[in-house]
Nucleic acid binder design. Structure first.
Lengths: 223, 223
DNA sequence: TTTACAGAGGGAACTGAGTGCCATACGTTG
DNA sequence: CAACGTATGGCACTCAGTTCCCTCTGTAAA
């Protein structure tokens, strides 16, 4: 029933446009009563994103089950990939929905609220993982925003291409940028992980070698 | 008139709650006709954020006028600070609006769309600045998302404190994290700026010195 | 078979946001 | 005075979303 309603709604949105489609139109095509529509979808907009609710639940479950041994950024990147796979599972639908969403302001803002819930979920996980680290909460929110932005960048470029190429590859490349960026600037390390520490060196390219070595040495010296 | 309506609306939202306030209530208190409300605000939500439209215009103007000599990240951070100053200009109002927005889902999603417009504006600037650099568009979106997330983190912590402390300080600290993070991982430099190039070196802290020097040398070698 | 019950769906009527249309009032310019 | 552009008020309409109540169907107990 949910599916019947969502299909009818989506078809009509494509045919007549979102605003020009009334709920009465939808229930007429679906052959059900008007009241039933609002039983399954709290608003007209919800019928366009019928599967995000369960995907969000999947993501939460995935993060809850993730091992603390893994790098936290890697975990949230994999969490984001769950969303990608939801889109990649039905390219034609995803592309049509993308085009529809781009054109309808109401759907755009609705999508923002959906994305925001994913972002908050990822940020919540990172905050817990980085609990106690300096600026843990801040870093968690910035990192979650970065991961979401990168994911959406890759996803959108795939959607703009008409869903033709490899969606995973586009998102992987985008997420790699975030991963290397956060790997190069780790939070204060947990005790017992000293061996994984890295040093990041920044120097003008024209700097004399002795100056560079001096800085490397001072960075490597135990303190 | 705009101000009269916005004030009346905001008062009533605080008194009765957003949902329990009708547009008729607002225009009755403001002493104007119902039709006039929608002339000044396209929706009930808009009356809560009456000044973001002009702030967005200010930001656009600021970015357009920014010198290309400055670091792009620094410029967008300063752009974000324009929003902070808008909030800091009227702490009491900002705090009340923050609490109201937290409680009303409709206002939350509306605020998301406002934030998104700022983010797109910043991303557009960065994309133009990094035009041609590898992954320029991706980096622009991720950086803009980072700046916005950091800004909002600082802003919200100030709002949660009741608008008591120094708003600028909270946001400066948050933005510094993003700035240093992006300063350590710069995009490929524009031609003609060879002298400003930097090399970023990442090495395990326990790595032998000869290995480190080898990598520094190869990085410094002209290609 | 009848009764009691629960849960899904249907439907009428209502509230209230947002829009379109027209009338009115005011100020400006000829 | 007349013509005109602009700001405002008021009325009626559409439609999303809600409330309340009805019917239908399947199920389990008497």
């Amino acid at each position: 029933m949910r599916e019947v309603l969502a299909d009818a709604a989506f078809q009509l949105y494509l045919e007549r446009g979102f605003e020009r489609t009334t709920v009465d139109d939808i229930v007429a095509r679906a052959g059900v009563g008007r009241r039933s529509f609002f039983r399954y979808f709290p608003s007209k907009e919800d019928a366009v994103f019928p599967d995000h609710e369960s995907c969000l639940a999947d993501m939460t479950a995935f993060l809850d089950a993730a091992s603390d041994e893994r790098d936290a950024i890697d975990v949230v990147c994999d969490g984001a990939r769950l969303v990608l796979r939801l889109y990649a599972a039905d390219p034609q639908f995803s592309v049509q929905r993308y085009r529809l969403t781009r054109e309808v302001p109401g759907l755009r803002t609705y999508e923002l609220s959906v994305v925001r819930r994913y972002e908050r979920t990822l940020a919540g996980y990172l905050r817990q993982r980085w609990n106690g680290a300096e600026n843990g909460a801040l870093r968690a929110e910035v990192a979650a925003a970065s991961v979401v932005a990168a994911h959406n960048n890759g996803l959108r470029s795939w959607l703009r291409s008409g869903g033709e190429g490899d969606a995973e590859a586009a998102v992987d490349q985008a997420l790699d940028l975030v991963r290397t960026m956060w790997a190069a600037a780790p939070q204060s390390p947990a005790p017992g992980a000293e061996d994984d520490e890295v040093v990041v060196m920044v120097a003008p390219k024209g700097a004399p070698m002795w100056r560079v070595i001096q800085r490397v040495e001072s960075a490597l010296r135990d303190d």
